[in-house]
């Protein structure tokens, strides 16, 4: 499991994510969930509506790996992508984050962050962004 920084958690919790899923053959379906909750360092939970759960349940069953990109203003201020296996239990989608990438356009695009020690990731964030999370 990857370790998420407080900044990552704060943006993701408040604004949720575009959640990319796919069949095993790579046919994609994206849903948007506008809030999340973080349980532990690298587990993100989303409460889905029945329609959302129904839309992705077959994909998750055959191919649980998903991608998360922060939604709304967080897509600009929190340029991260999180990837990992997901499990759907009822209407709760729980994602265990295994990979974290910076998606800021330019030379740092696709830089993998979870392979760095946590203090290095935090330093990276502090040097790139002025905020430590969304406005209260």
């Amino acid at each position: 499991m990857a370790t998420m920084t407080p900044r990552m958690k704060a943006w993701l919790e408040k604004f949720g994510a575009h959640i990319g899923t796919a069949t095993k053959q790579g046919y994609p379906t994206t849903i948007v969930v506008e809030q999340a909750s973080i349980t532990g360092d690298g587990v993100v939970a989303f409460n889905l509506t029945p329609a959302q759960a129904n839309q992705i349940k077959d994909n998750i069953a055959q191919n649980p790996y998903v991608a998360l990109a922060p939604h709304a203003i967080a897509s600009i201020r929190a340029a991260y992508q999180f990837k990992g296996p997901a499990a759907l239990s009822g209407n709760t989608l729980q994602v265990t984050v295994k990979e974290i990438y910076c998606t800021k356009p330019g030379p740092e695009a696709a830089l993998r962050l979870d392979v760095l020690p946590l203090e290095h990731i935090v330093k990276f964030e502090e040097s790139r962004w002025r905020d430590s999370g969304p406005p209260k």
Partner: peptide, 20 residues
């Protein structure tokens, strides 16, 4: 608004990124 593009590897690993 920023849009999000999802693509997938041939094995089905999705990639979702914001695009301005």
């Amino acid at each position: 608004v920023v849009v999000h593009l999802t693509t997938c590897s041939a094995e089905g690993i999705p990639n979702t990124v914001g695009e301005r």
